[in-house]
């Protein structure tokens, strides 16, 4: 069982993360990772079988920043917003200022005509660097809605 204060810290980070994406403030997304942070959005079927391909793979914060600029400037898609719901947040033991965490998530997508669909459901496995400003060192988002309805533009 993880320390409740640590869990609070991690929950807060996760909720702020969701808020940035839900508010369409993508530019805030990379800043929640360490400079050398890694982000992977992995279909559950690949994860289960040990296949290495991710839907989105960023091996550094710079790569996340590129993704944001590309989404803003070079990608064409129907405007929509996303809504993240995180639950079942758990944390492990703190080791050298880092903690492993796991949470479930669901993301809904709403288009301009007001239609909402379930875009993705799955879980997050992350390693958080604690400190005055906690950040993600690594985040693996494993999605089981692996037949994506249409496109997936924004990170989860």
């Amino acid at each position: 069982m993880g320390d409740p204060t640590i869990r609070c810290t991690v929950e807060d980070l996760l909720y702020r993360y969701a808020e940035a994406l839900d508010d369409g403030e993508l530019e805030r997304w990379p800043a929640m990772f360490l400079e050398s942070g890694q982000y992977r959005l992995i279909p559950r079927e690949n994860h289960q079988r040990g296949l290495p391909v991710s839907l989105i793979l960023c091996t550094s914060r710079a790569m996340m920043e590129d993704r944001v600029v590309a989404i803003r400037k070079a990608c064409v898609y129907t405007p929509h917003v996303c809504r993240h719901l995180h639950t079942n947040v758990r944390v492990g033991e703190v080791e050298a200022g880092h903690v492993e965490t796991r949470a479930n998530y669901a993301v809904y997508r709403t288009t301009e005509d007001g239609e909402t669909v379930l875009l993705s459901v799955g879980h997050v496995e992350a390693r958080v660097a604690l400190g005055p400003e906690p950040r993600f060192e690594r985040m693996d988002v494993v999605y089981e809605t692996f037949r994506i309805p249409g496109l997936l533009v924004y990170p989860i």
Partner: peptide, 18 residues
């Protein structure tokens, strides 16, 4: 790494589906 270019979130393939 270049799987980032293709598929449902690919820099050069998401527009096709759109």
């Amino acid at each position: 790494l270049q799987a980032n270019l293709v598929g449902p979130s690919g820099y050069i393939s998401l527009e096709d589906v759109e």
